[in-house]
């Protein structure tokens, strides 16, 4: 299983737990599985189209990755808001 790491508001919504062990072959699989395990996260990271929201970045082992990127057991997946604002 991969470990999804959440911070801030996302962590709070996901039961106030920072790390979630989730199975999946790709980043998209893992994020969708995490939504199923934590329904309160629905719509926060992925939109209705199934795409990552524009100002959310996903990293696998420190490298920014797309939804189709492969995931292996033990990989660390960080879901972070982008540095932006006004």
């Amino acid at each position: 299983m991969a470990v999804v790491r959440l911070r801030g508001q996302l962590r709070k919504i996901a039961g106030d737990e920072a790390e979630h062990a989730v199975a999946g072959a790709t980043v998209g699989d893992v994020l969708r599985a995490l939504e199923r395990e934590r329904p309160a996260l629905a719509g926060w990271v992925l939109d209705e189209r199934g795409e990552v929201r524009r100002h959310i970045n996903v990293y696998v082992n420190g490298e920014e990755r797309e939804l189709g990127a492969p995931v292996a057991g033990g990989d660390r997946i960080d879901v972070l808001p982008a540095i932006s604002g006004g």
């Binding site: 929201r53 808001p81 932006s84 604002g85």
Partner: peptide, 8 residues
Amino acid sequence: TSAFYGPK
């Protein structure tokens, strides 16, 4: 509408 997490 969070810039990050979309409209709620």
